[in-house]
Design a protein around this nucleic acid. Structure first.
Lengths: 109, 109
DNA sequence: TTTAAATTTGTCAAAAAATGACAAGTCTTA
DNA sequence: TAAGACTTGTCATTTTTTGACAAATTTAAA
């Protein structure tokens, strides 16, 4: 999915022929705010992902992945992180993982 | 640099033989909070990057890159984003860039 | 050991950022 | 030109982050 999460929601909404007001009601939020979300002026609230999945009959795990990749994309974009730096970030993330998986041979206390 | 930003600061500080209190004073923050930063229990405040660069005679741009890659690494780690998903995120970031660079052939208003 | 400095941890008020809500605006389109 | 759909601006509320201080705990020298 090569769109922002906001664009994606708009896409889904239009497919179903719903208005902002209608979808906003289902999501329990204001239509004005949903508009901002679709236009990437606000973030979609993670807490509503499962609701969103239900409304459109989507797989929640996949939807969460869409959400996560969008969030990271946003940060990459906003920080102007280039490919090389992203590579470094990836390594650092890997390093963080090792920090929480202490070596098995050492006895935990 | 394959460490967290907190570990990196600690490294720099120890190289210079400074105590938490001494460095914290230079950075204009509490030694207890600097401790948390070094132990990755809090984030280093972006606003202090230039101060940090000066204190240790570092290139600001490189330091910022360390910071950015650490921030992204943190998000990758926390969201459990795997390589494949990261690839998607990268594409989405690329897509976001295109959104702000409208096609040249179209006349801007 | 004792002690003093260094570091860590917990807590909480203040500052900053995100969110919800509503009013008022613009843009369709019938 | 009227109604519905959408957008934008603002602001109070909520949530998150930060700064500060007190109270541990750890470390290292004597």
């Amino acid at each position: 999915m090569k769109t922002t999460f906001g664009e994606y929601i708009r896409l889904l909404r239009n497919e179903k022929g719903l208005t902002l007001t209608q979808l906003a009601a289902k999501l329990n939020l204001d239509s004005a705010n949903l508009s901002k979300i679709e236009n990437d002026k606000r973030d979609f609230d993670k807490k509503r992902l499962s609701k969103l999945a239900k409304i459109f009959g989507l797989n929640l795990k996949e939807l969460k992945n869409e959400f996560i990749s969008d969030q990271i994309a946003k940060q990459i974009y906003e920080t102007n992180c280039n490919k090389q730096l992203l590579k470094v970030a990836e390594e650092k993330a890997e390093y963080r993982r090792t920090l929480n998986k202490p070596i098995k041979t050492e006895k935990a206390l």
